[in-house]
């Protein structure tokens, strides 16, 4: 279980990066949680850590690794984590029935609607005077994408082209994909 220091540190980081009042959000999510689980008195450490790390825009893989090894991984550690897919899948499944359920209720979404992205969640919270804090806005300039193929072949331009085609199917064009050094 993470120490209170880690939780406080993650909470401050999330608050600073997202511009969201985490204490107010935590208080409101506890009330929503009690609608589903009447005996609950607070968000669990796992729920809080997941919320803070997500609002600080760590990736799903980074957060899953964090719960596994209690640290945010380097790119190399993430790449070589054999259980990454299983860890991420399990975390997503668990949090879908917890934090994401509470957030959907807060955002007046139906329980069976697809969970919103963290950008959408943050934008929703920032629009509310209840949660908004002064912050410096940032824009994303680069993403990293960890891909895996089950093959003895090395990953090459064909695979990059596949990613391009996949993104085009979702209406995303005019991007540049390169291999990391």
């Amino acid at each position: 279980m993470d120490s209170q220091d880690n939780l406080d540190r993650n909470l401050l980081e999330a608050q600073e990066k997202s511009g969201i009042d985490l204490r107010q959000l935590q208080s409101d999510l506890i009330k929503i949680k009690q609608e589903f689980y009447p005996h609950s008195k607070m968000l669990s450490d796992t729920e809080m850590q997941y919320l803070c790390l997500s609002l600080a825009r760590y990736s799903q893989g980074q957060i899953a690794y964090y719960f596994y090894k209690h640290k945010i991984p380097s790119a190399e550690e993430l790449k070589t984590c054999e259980d990454l897919q299983r860890l991420t899948r399990n975390l997503n499944a668990e949090m879908s029935s917890r934090i994401h359920k509470y957030l959907k209720r807060l955002m007046n979404m139906k329980d069976n609607e697809r969970k919103p992205s963290w950008k959408k969640i943050i934008d929703f919270l920032r629009q509310s005077e209840r949660y908004k804090l002064p912050h410096t806005s940032t824009v994303i300039t680069k993403l990293s994408v960890l891909i895996e193929i089950e093959s003895f072949q090395s990953i090459d331009r064909n695979h990059i082209q596949q990613i391009n085609e996949l993104l085009k199917q979702h209406g995303i064009e005019n991007i540049r994909i390169s291999e990391s050094i």
């Binding site: 790449k79 992205s117 963290w118 959408k120 994303i140 300039t141 895996e148 089950e150 991007i175 390169s178």
Partner: peptide, 24 residues
């Protein structure tokens, strides 16, 4: 299994869109 990290650059809106698609 073979893994690699790729870098995607583009406008902030498009990158947010990619991230959202993965998260959902």
């Amino acid at each position: 299994k073979n893994r690699k990290t790729l870098i995607i650059e583009g406008s902030s809106d498009r990158l947010e869109q990619i991230l959202a698609l993965f998260e959902t």
